[in-house]
Design a protein around this nucleic acid. Sequence first.
DNA 1: TTGACATATCAAAAATATTTGATATTATGG
DNA 2: CCATAATATCAAATATTTTTGATATGTCAA
Lengths: 104, 104
Amino acid sequence: MVDTVKIARALSDPIRYKIMTMLAQSDLGCCPIPGEKDLRPGLCNCELMSELGLIQSRVSYHMKELYEAGLVTEEPRGKWKVYFINTKTLRDFIQEINKDFALK
Amino acid sequence: MVDTVKIARALSDPIRYKIMTMLAQSDLGCCPIPGEKDLRPGLCNCELMSELGLIQSRVSYHMKELYEAGLVTEEPRGKWKVYFINTKTLRDFIQEINKDFALK
DNA sequence: TTGACATATCAAAAATATTTGATATTATGG
DNA sequence: CCATAATATCAAATATTTTTGATATGTCAA
């Protein structure tokens, strides 16, 4: 099962929580490679840096935290890296909380 | 609305998460006062201390964190204090995550 | 291949969170 | 009221997390 405490920790930082909402709302494919199509909606580091006003290593650190908690997936796209929200982990997280705390 | 980041932080410590599961599972009223009845299922500090093997000030610290996140309610009962899980906050938390991350 | 750009990693500094032991507060029962 | 028991608070010590700047790695395009 998912590591509920680890996921809670990943979500417990305001910057990371914000990044997750940005990923959830992104509806445009990012960093297109000429000739490729069907880009899934996601965000790359550079967009996160400029939107949040954070330096590169800081974004990188937080994305690693989210990745290791299973909350995002990654896809190298050319020299960029694009991140996607992993809704499966979030659903499992919610299900586990429902179970652990006898909510339904 | 609930402070989702704050709740996530409260749940992000293994001890606090464990305490929440213990509160969710408690089915016996605790620390009865002679003459009173209808005790809601809950746990007092002393039970948490002995079950978890933690010293008093440490339990107190963690219960305060949970209380301030709205995850538990408290009731002084005689010279004891009994804690209850606050399922409303947990439900609101889940609802907010569903909304923020477009899960359904 | 080289230069430019994007990302990853690292070590040190800074900021936060947790643990502990001591002391304070509050309630109870004698 | 007094002694005892339970909980709260506090300051100091520890531990953990986050931030930063520097450097390394990897990719692309010329």
